[in-house]
Design a protein around this nucleic acid. Structure first.
Lengths: 212, 212
DNA sequence: CGGAAAAAAGGTATTTATTCCTGTTTGATT
DNA sequence: AATCAAACAGGAATAAATACCTTTTTTCCG
């Protein structure tokens, strides 16, 4: 049965299972961080306050949990829910400035990485970066996720994430590849061309998907 | 996943299983008989209206159904397993001008659809559209795929695909939802604002991913 | 241990679901 | 075919959940 107490307990369990607080879970789901505050679970007059079904739908979508699995948390909390969908690493652009965010082959490593639900077969070592700031408008807005595949072939015209030997990650459109340089164009208003020496580039990765 | 459409279908199925109408089920649960009226499933401005979690608790208690069982109604009984490397339907924008490319709920149907490999768990009825022409530059280039989720919640600022009652699909950024209109902005160079009457819109779907 | 950030308490404004109401449609019964 | 009750459409009023906001507490990191 579905009771007020059990549904809130299930929300707490879902948050904990995903290594989040109720506040963090609400944010992940696109809700106000205070939506699931314990102090909001009863109204001022003591009446139980229920989370809305739409809020439940949002947290299930945000964590990749099925309703059946969530129902297991409500009705039989001691039983382990089934595993969630596959995930891939994601970090903010600004969080990967540090040298130890990637290993020498460009794979995400270290503590700056979180995970998001994105069904993937894990054979391409893909990862995602979260856009911060407005530099990449109108193509990528703040909060958008860019999914990149280091192993994917890159052709002229593709959009890429590039790690220079010095400095932070950058996003470009690849114009042309010459023996000594990579000719690229910045993304955003007033795009500028640049020629980057291969020797100044640690790795590049092709952007394959962008969230909207 | 828990979607607006599926939760209402599950309520209808629960009523039918118990040899009741939605009105009868609401009464049995101690709710107003008009609570589950079909005319109340969308607000006047077209926004989906969700039954509350407390109402769900009441109908489950009234019929003796567990949440797990109800979850089975929400997520299809013959549900497909969540696998990687699944596919989703894709068609070119110009190929869906014909009236029979979508059914009345906006789901792809007919012979214009192919499939692409795109990891998805198939519970959101998502599909993809392939961009043709340059109208959506610089955001979407010819050949890009836009993945859309009809069941996903749409918030202001989201990019959407919209099917008007007359004419072909269009892509917009949603600015604001008013009781009579959807205020949108075209995507592409020189974006223009427009206010579309809800009555002139068959369905909208949120764009969730775009290929690069 | 101190400082910064996240989480949470709790209040108010806004948005959204239900209740209440009237009228129409539908289905069952005679 | 007529009648009646149930179901439903749809609008307005009311109740309830979320968003927004400020402040306090807790947690984490250097």
């Amino acid at each position: 049965m579905l009771s007020h107490e059990k549904v809130w307990a299930a929300i707490d369990a879902l948050a904990s299972y995903n290594e989040m607080t109720p506040s963090g879970l609400a944010k992940r789901a696109g809700l106000d961080p205070t939506t699931f505050n314990r102090s909001k679970r009863f109204a001022g007059d003591g009446r139980p306050r229920w989370p809305s079904t739409e809020s439940l739908a949002k947290i299930l979508e945000a964590t990749g949990e099925s309703l059946k699995s969530f129902a297991g948390r409500v009705e039989a909390p001691e039983q382990r829910p089934s595993t969630t969908l596959s995930t891939l690493p994601v970090a903010g652009f600004s969080n990967v400035h540090e040298e130890n965010a990637f290993d020498t082959t460009g794979r995400p490593t270290g503590k700056n990485w979180e995970t998001i639900v994105f069904p993937t077969d894990h054979t391409q070592n893909i990862f995602a970066l979260e856009v911060s700031g407005d530099a990449l408008l109108p193509l990528y807005r703040e909060g958008d996720l860019i999914v990149v595949a280091p192993s994917a072939a890159v052709r002229c015209g593709d959009r890429i994430v590039l790690k220079p030997s010095e400095g932070g990650l950058a996003v470009y459109t690849l114009l042309k590849r010459t023996p000594k340089t990579l000719q690229v164009q910045t993304i955003g208003d007033n795009p500028e061309k640049a020629a980057l020496l291969h020797s100044a580039i640690e790795w590049t990765a092709r952007i394959i998907w962008a969230s909207q």
